[in-house]
Every structure is written in structure tokens, then in C-alpha cells.
Amino acid sequence: MPKPPHWELMIVWYFFLGGIAGGAYFTAAIADNFGGARDRGVARAGYLLSLPLVAVCGLLLIADLGVPTRFLNMMRTLKVWDPMSIGAWIVGVFGLFTFVSSALSLSSSPSHAALRRKIGLVGIFFGFFLASYTGVLLSNSAMPFSAGEGWGKLKHADRYSMLVELLLLAALIAALGAAARPLVSGHFATLFWGGLIGLGLLLPLALDLLGTRARALGALAAALVLIGGFVLRYVVLMSVQA
């Protein structure tokens, strides 16, 4: 019988913060490149947010190792087909991008800005990778739940991704069938339905659709999305290992 890896809360936080970091950088780079002048603030905030987050991610990842002092051993090899190997590299490389982008975002020089926008376009890939590879990481396992066909992705940002998440989740549950039982009707059912689907997706979606002009509601929606994202990672990881 396959065994769970016993990844605990640290890894949930890592997945979660990695998602936010990647999302923030992604959003920042898009805003930087395609947004208007008013979006510069969004861009700067995104870059500056992603840097500490990815740093924390790295620390969480190291702290969770059985022998943290050997974290550099991850850098001995690069296996392109191995999400764990790639992930470790991505944290490092993306960290570098967030550092450079953050540094450049503090500068007002147009040449720096041009460079920052170009770097951002490249960094997007790593940020996005960090945010989404965790799904691949989990599905790339012998555990029956996560190894099920059609395992969906962890998504973020605004209403589009919420809809996508809802659809993907529905697809996931449908595809998993019986294997999803621990998630939808087991110990984690309340958290799944109430926390993730209700608080994290349906409510923010409703709030979003109701009134985008009410800033407080928008902020609440964003917070709820984040909670939902965390809950999603938590229930998936924990129910797999339950």
C-alpha cells in the first residue's frame, strides 16, 4: 500500500505562500507590462510582496527537510521530469527574479523600468511555475488520491480563476470518483465544502459579482479567496495523508 510523505503544516504554508508569491509576481508583471500608469503601484506592490514571500517559502522548505543542513543537496542535480527537483530550483531562480524585480521597482529610471518589464515577462514563467507546480508535485505520487487521473490545479487571482477553480474542482471530484471521498465526505468535508467551496470560492465570487465598487467588499473577497486557497491546499494535502 503506497504511503503518504507526511508533509505537515509547513508544506501547506509553503504551497500557499508560494502561490501568493507567484500570483503576486505574475499580476505585477502583467500590470507592469500591460497595465496603465495607475497600475504601476500594483506592479511595485506585487514585486515587493513576492520577494519576502518566496524567501519564507525557501525557509519553510528547508525547515521541513529531515536534514535541513543538506538543503543544498537539492542543487546537486536537476531532473527536469521531477517536480521536486524542478520546484527546488524554481524557488531559487524565482527568488532571484523577485529580488531583481523588487530592486528595479524601487528605481525611477526608465531604463531600469524597461529592464524590469522585460525581466518580469521572463519571471512570470517561474512565478507561475512556483504557484502551480505543487499540483504536479502532489499528483506525481503513488498515493491513490493524488495519483488519480485529471488532478486539477491550484489557482488564484480573481473571478476568472475562481470560476476555473470551481470548474476544475468539479472536474477533479468527478474524475476522482470514489477516491475523492475523503475530501468531499470524510473528515475534511466541512472544511472542503464550507471553507473552500463556500468561503473561498462561491462567496467571493458572489461578492465580486455583486459589487466591485465597494472596496471593503473587494478586499474581503480577495481575503476570502486567499483563505480558500489555503484551505484547498490544506484539505488536499491532509486528506491525501489521512
Binding site: 502583467i30 500591460f34 499528483s139 488564484h156 480573481d158 476555473v164
Partner: peptide, 25 residues
Amino acid sequence: NVMVDSLLSIGSALVVGLGVLLSFR
């Protein structure tokens, strides 16, 4: 699973990216 899931990831990335792009546009 790596290949399939990675493709799914890229696919969803395109969807999300498009969404974000659109919203900023």
C-alpha cells in the same frame, strides 16, 4: 502524471493569464 499535469497547468495558466490580461486591459 508529470506530462499531463504540466500541460494542464500550462492550459490553466493560459486561461488565468488571459483573464488577468483582459482585466488589466
